[in-house]
Amino acid sequence: MLDFLYGHYAYWLTIVLVCIGLYGIIFKKNLVKKTIGLTILQISVVLFWVAIGSKWGATVPVYDPDIPVADAANYLNPLPHTLMLTAIVVGVATLGVAFSLLISVYNRYKTLDEEEILNEIQ
């Protein structure tokens, strides 16, 4: 039982982060707070991939002549790291797109509250 908890607590922490992000998206009325929740959700996915790519007894995926490369148990799996590396930068760029959309919404309606914007549209 304790081994099970020790092996799974990292996943549950990322699930807590997912729930915080979803809470921000669903409950908050301000659009900037919704965007912050979206970013927390994205970072939780990145942390989940990094957690699932770990391997006990392995070292970082940089080739060392002293450690034989033929046995794959000596090195971490480089594939999740690569995917998340690109995902972080793409996340920052799309966050820029989200904030520029918010700036243009604010310039038009002079508010960022969701319900006030809906009232102004109708």
């Binding site: 699930i15 979803l22 699932i52 391997k55």
Partner: peptide
């Protein structure tokens, strides 16, 4: 929100332990 969290935790029960060298990924 609570139902979604429960679904995620139920899904995580079948995952291999973190850092297990015998997982299918490794």
């Amino acid at each position: 929100l609570i139902a979604f969290a429960g679904l995620l935790i139920y899904g995580s029960l079948d995952l291999p332990d973190r850092g297990d060298p015998d997982a299918w990924l490794h």
